[in-house]
Structures are given as structure tokens and as C-alpha cells.
């Protein structure tokens, strides 16, 4: 294993470095504002004095790099400052919503990961059959549709025309798990539709690629039955690409949540972000972006590490 650990360590460090740079970008973007936040809050009509006073209040009179480190330091301790819009702590607003978002994404993942891998493997094995073609066309349609289109279609058919699920997915902390799942069904389904399609296509491509390898042909020429070829010869090697596919799609899931949350008025980070963007509530926007970026980077990291761990060449070094 000694060949793998340094490699993984290197990836982790790289991920951490990327996160740091991303935090600089997120912080720096707000610095690019013409004028500054104080000016922005008070509007053009404000007097010099009030602007200067607010600047001092917000600590804007200090140089940018000092404020960056303060911001980052506080953020690491879970303090993202106070919202400009309602003067409440950003962390307080963000925390429960982040859990909601994770719940929604998790639910979508639970539906889509097994489904997508199953369908993808099936499509690869039945390549060029009717099933493969229909699955290919349907997944293309699903990928091509904007999330809000799929969401509204589900609302029309499963909430309005047939009142099976609520069209508005408002969840509260005191809700029990059953109700929570029930209320979140439609948004989770919407996300699962898109992600399943992506994942299925990628799984299919990975498996087809694999089945073309000479060692699969060799196995067949040794008289190995089809089932065993798949299970024993293809699967161990398919693990790496499939882990990669899943992790990348989970990363997409967490960020793709924004639109779905808006469609279903779901109390998640995505909706908070969109609201704050239109209110130009910078501390909340920065914090939400950081949370999204960190999750995204984390899943990409998992994809990398998973690929390393499932590669026999790296697991058994020379």
C-alpha cells in the first residue's frame, strides 16, 4: 500500500490548495465591486460620513488581505458574519438549510445511483438492442431538458392533475422522517431524473470501453461463461470508472440543486443563494458559494481517491 498513500496525500493537499484559492476568488469577487459594499448598501444618495461610518462598522477600512484572513478564520470556526438584509447570523440561516439540501441530494442519490448503474450496465451488455436505443434516446431527452421543465412536468402530473404529492416542498425541522420524505419526493425525483440519465450514459460508456479490452476476449477464449466474464473479469476493473462516475455526479447533484429548490420552494442553500443574489446580500452569497464549492471539491476529491484505490496497478506496486 505504500505506493498509494503518498499519492492520496498529494491529492488531498491539492484539494486543500484548490479550496484555498477558491476562497480567495469568492472573497476577491466582492472586492471587485465598483465602490464597495458600504456604498452599495446605502445607495448613491448617502453622505460621505454615513458611508465612512458604515465602512468602519463593517471593518472595510482595513486592507483587503487582513479582512480576507479574518473572514477565512471566522468561516473556519463556523462564523460567516451577519446578513446585510436581515442582520441575522449567516451561519444560523445557513446551517439548517444546508442539512435540508444534503437531505434532498442524498435522497436523489439513493434513488439514482443504483438505478443508473443497473440501467447503464444493462445498456452496455445489450448494446445496440432496442432497449439500448430507447434508453439512449430517453436519457438524452432527460439530460437536455432544463431541471425546471422536468420539475414543472412532475408538478402538473403528480401534484395538480393527480394530487399525490405536494407541489410545494416545505420542510420544517420538527417534521418526522416519513413526512419529510413524502414532501421531498418530487424535488428528489426531478434531480434523480437528470442525474440518473448522466450516470447511466457514463456507466454504459465505461463498461463498453472495458468490454473491448483484450483480456476480456482472452477470458472468452478460455471458455469462461458470459456471467463469469462480467462478474470476475470486467467488474473488478469497472470499479474505478464507476466510482469516478458516481462521485462526479454527486458533485453535480449538490450544485444542480439550486434550480430544483427554487421550483419547489424547498428551504435549502440553493434557494437562499438565489434570494440573496437578488437582494445583493454579499455575506450570505459568499458563504453559500463557499459551501457549494467545498462540497463540489470534496466529491471531486473522492472521485480521484476512489480511482487511485481501485486501480490494481497502484494498489500492488512493483
Amino acid at each position: 500500500m505504500n505506493g498509494v498513500l503518498p499519492l492520496i496525500g498529494k491529492r488531498l493537499l491539492l484539494g486543500l490548495g484548490t479550496l484555498l484559492v477558491v476562497s480567495i476568488i469568492i472573497f476577491g469577487a466582492v472586492e471587485l465591486l465598483p465602490g464597495d459594499v458600504a456604498q452599495e448598501i446605502l445607495g448613491q444618495s448617502a453622505t460621505e460620513e454615513t458611508v465612512a461610518e458604515l465602512r468602519r462598522q463593517l471593518g472595510l477600512d482595513q486592507p483587503a488581505y487582513i479582512r480576507y484572513f479574518q473572514w477565512l478564520g471566522n468561516a473556519l470556526q463556523g462564523d460567516f458574519g451577519t446578513s446585510l438584509a436581515n442582520k441575522r447570523s449567516v451561519a444560523e440561516q445557513l446551517g439548517p438549510r444546508f442539512l435540508n439540501t444534503l437531505f434532498l441530494a442524498g435522497m436523489a442519490a439513493l434513488i439514482s445511483v443504483p438505478l443508473a448503474i443497473g440501467l447503464g450496465v444493462l445498456a452496455a451488455l445489450m448494446r445496440n438492442s432496442i432497449y439500448d436505443r430507447v434508453a439512449n434516446a430517453l436519457s438524452l431527452v432527460s439530460i437536455s431538458s432544463p431541471e425546471f421543465f422536468l420539475g414543472y412536468i412532475l408538478i402538473v402530473f403528480m401534484a395538480v392533475q393527480n394530487p399525490w404529492f405536494p407541489a410545494i416542498a416545505n420542510v420544517t425541522p420538527e417534521m418526522d422522517l416519513g413526512t419529510r420524505i413524502y414532501r421531498s419526493t418530487l424535488p428528489a425525483l426531478t434531480m434523480a431524473l437528470v442525474v440518473t440519465a448522466y450516470m447511466m450514459r457514463m456507466t454504459r460508456a465505461a463498461i463498453i470501453n472495458l468490454l473491448a479490452s483484450p483480456y476480456i476476449e482472452m477470458a472468452r477464449l478460455k471458455g469462461v461463461p458470459n456471467r463469469r466474464v462480467i462478474l470476475r473479469h470486467a467488474l473488478p476493473n469497472a470499479l474505478a470508472p464507476i466510482i469516478n462516475v458516481v462521485a462526479l455526479n454527486l458533485a453535480y447533484l449538490v450544485t444542480g440543486v439550486v434550480l430544483v429548490e427554487v421550483v419547489f420552494v424547498y428551504q435549502g442553500v440553493g434557494q437562499l443563494l438565489v434570494d440573496s443574489v437578488s437582494k445583493r446580500d454579499f455575506p450570505v452569497v459568499q458563504a453559500s458559494c463557499l459551501v457549494f464549492a467545498a462540497t463540489f471539491i470534496l466529491f471531486n476529491l473522492i472521485a480521484d481517491v476512489g480511482a487511485i484505490l481501485s486501480n490494481p496497478r497502484l494498489r500492488h506496486p512493483k
Binding site: S213, P214, Y215, M218, A219, K222, G223, V224, P236
Partner: peptide, 25 residues
């Protein structure tokens, strides 16, 4: 019937052994 013959009564040696051995076993 073919499967029963392959590997047992007729065997194959490929050009690239590196690609024809399964890397996972």
C-alpha cells in the same frame, strides 16, 4: 459446446500479453 472446447482443448496465445492478462488478478 464451443465454451467447453475453448481453453481446454483449443487455447490461444495473444500478441500482447500485457494487455491480455487481466490487471486485477
Amino acid at each position: 459446446e464451443k465454451r467447453a472446447l475453448r481453453g481446454s482443448r483449443i487455447a490461444y496465445v495473444a500478441q500482447s500479453a500485457a494487455a491480455s492478462f487481466n490487471p486485477a488478478h
